[in-house]
Simulated assay, not measured.
Amino acid sequence: MSIRIREVALEDAADLLQIYAYYVEKTAITFEYEIPSLEEFQGRIQKISAFYPYLVAEDEGTILGYAYASSFHPRAAYAWSAEATVYLSNTARGAGIGRLLYEQLENRLKKMGVLNLNACIATTDHEDPYLTNGSQKFHEALGFRLVGKFHQSGYKFQTWYDMIWMEKMLGEHTRQVNPIKSIHDCLLS
């Protein structure tokens, strides 16, 4: 297997949506109930990738997963924080692809000037066919730490699930900081 990490292209949307559809229909990893339309998903990709990195992992042209960062909060003082998201093809999990995607994502975010990387993760006290705590363990292995828990905040498959926030510091927090750059400005320099 020769994994290639690259920037997303709008033409990837159907493959990425197919990966995401599994999580909508079969898991409580996302609290979304309905699979978005292709047009809506393309719009999400365009909106996010206009400023933040949106990466695809592929092997010989087959997309195995994707990861992206997005705005943590729209207010100006949060500019140095971003939220990370990763989804892998159900058949590609456990092969280190998520780690590769996050490493590349973090490298790009550091170049942008992002200091805090946050992850919003569904969790449960009682693992079931729809949700294990694998995502939390994955993030812990990458250096994220738990910073908050919201109890029974998501209802899916007739079950209440918790939601946690995890964070990882990507840089030093100093009194004087440079403005955040778009990923496109970083790729050009």
Results as ranks from 00 to 15, higher is better:
E106D: 06
Y23G: 04
E60P: 12
Y161P: 13
L105T: 05
T159A: 10
A84Y: 00
L100K: 13
M1V: 14
L38V: 06
L187I: 07
V147L: 12
Y54P: 00
S182M: 14
W165M: 12
Y33M: 07
N133Q: 01
Y87V: 00
A14I: 02
L115I: 14
G94Q: 02
I19M: 05
F31H: 03
G134Y: 02
W160V: 09
L109H: 01
A122G: 14
K181V: 08
S49T: 00
P74A: 11
S182W: 01
Q18W: 11
Q152M: 13
T123A: 08
A21H: 09
R99C: 14
M166D: 03
D12W: 02
M169V: 06
M112G: 08
V8M: 13
Y66A: 01
R4C: 14
E127H: 08
V86H: 12
E106Q: 11
Y102H: 03
D162N: 09
F150Y: 15
F31N: 08
F157Y: 06
E127A: 05
R4K: 08
N107E: 15
N178K: 11
F51P: 02
E167W: 04
M163V: 10
E11G: 07
G61T: 02
E83F: 00
V24H: 11
L101H: 13
Q136P: 03
N107A: 04
A79M: 10
M163H: 05
A13M: 07
P36W: 03
E40V: 04
I29R: 15
F31D: 14
Y23Q: 09
L17N: 12
G134T: 09
H173S: 10
A50C: 00
D162W: 06
G98V: 10
M169K: 07
Y66S: 01
E7L: 02
A82P: 05
F51W: 02
L146H: 04
Y78V: 03
Y78K: 07
L16F: 10
R145G: 13
A95M: 10
K156I: 09
Q176L: 02
G148N: 10
D15V: 04
H73T: 12
E7S: 12
S71N: 11
E25N: 11
V86N: 07
M163E: 07
H73W: 05
E58V: 05
Y68R: 15
A50F: 01
R6L: 13
I35S: 06
R75N: 01
L115H: 15
L16E: 10
E140Q: 05
N90T: 02
A92I: 09
S81Q: 05
W80L: 09
K110F: 10
L55A: 04
N178E: 10
E58S: 04
E140V: 12
I19K: 05
A76F: 04
M112S: 08
A79K: 10
F72I: 04
P74R: 01
E58D: 06
V114P: 06
I48K: 00
